[in-house]
């Protein structure tokens, strides 16, 4: 799912909720007694439990296929053919290579030299594509397939000290 799409989902859900909320406020004028409303509320509660519970389980099941972890990505994209090692350190990135092939699954092995960082890849139009934490003492494997050649920007997305915001680099997909 792209970030832009997520916003529209929030807008849609937010409009629905705001309409329901406003409806109740408009109907807050003296009306039917609570003895009339309480049974309606109980029926509504049960219905909402079934509906939302069902939606939650469905979304969970669907989301499993798009999990970002290596075993899920390897199944979806194929086994990675290239490996790029990444080291984050206050306050910069070093990549073992600056060119990455397009349209094949590649693997970033992400480590940190000092504190926690977050290796996040932005496309040339500024959209965040993928990310993984860089943690001291761990090697996190991020598998991804770049569809479009171009220049990509790496930014740190885990606060790591007062020059966190300048911790960026670029690489080329061709």
């Amino acid at each position: 799912m792209t970030p832009g799409l997520v916003l529209w989902v929030l807008v849609a859900l937010g409009v629905l909720w705001t309409a329901a909320w406003a409806f109740v406020l408009v109907r807050s004028r003296p009306g039917p007694g609570f003895d009339v409303i309480e049974p309606v509320e109980n029926r509504l509660r049960l219905r909402l439990l079934v509906i939302f519970g069902g939606i939650g389980l469905l979304v969970f099941a669907l989301s499993l296929h798009a999990y970002p972890y290596p075993r899920f990505r390897a199944r979806a994209l194929g086994a990675p053919t290239e490996t790029i090692s990444v080291l984050g350190a206050q306050w910069g990135w070093s990549l073992s290579r600056n060119t990455v092939p397009a349209r094949v699954p590649v693997e970033f092995v992400v480590r940190s030299k000092d504190v926690n960082h977050d290796f996040a890849i932005y496309d040339s139009s500024g959209v965040l594509l993928v990310q993984v934490q860089a943690m001291p003492g761990y090697a996190n494997r991020l598998i991804y397939r770049f569809e479009r050649p171009g220049t990509y920007t790496v930014r740190c997305l885990e606060y790591c000290g007062i020059f966190h915001h300048i911790m960026r680099t670029t690489f080329v997909v061709h």
């Binding site: 109740v24 109907r27 807050s28 009306g31 609570f34 509320e41 509660r45 519970g53 939650g56």
Partner: peptide, 27 residues
């Protein structure tokens, strides 16, 4: 993930719906 979904259910269905039912038609 499941815990985050689950904690929303009782809060919404009991507290939020309960509050709205209290407000509806109450003056």
């Amino acid at each position: 993930q499941l815990g985050s979904y689950a904690v929303g259910l009782p809060s919404f269905i009991v507290t939020i719906v309960g509050a709205l039912a209290l407000i509806y038609g109450s003056g």
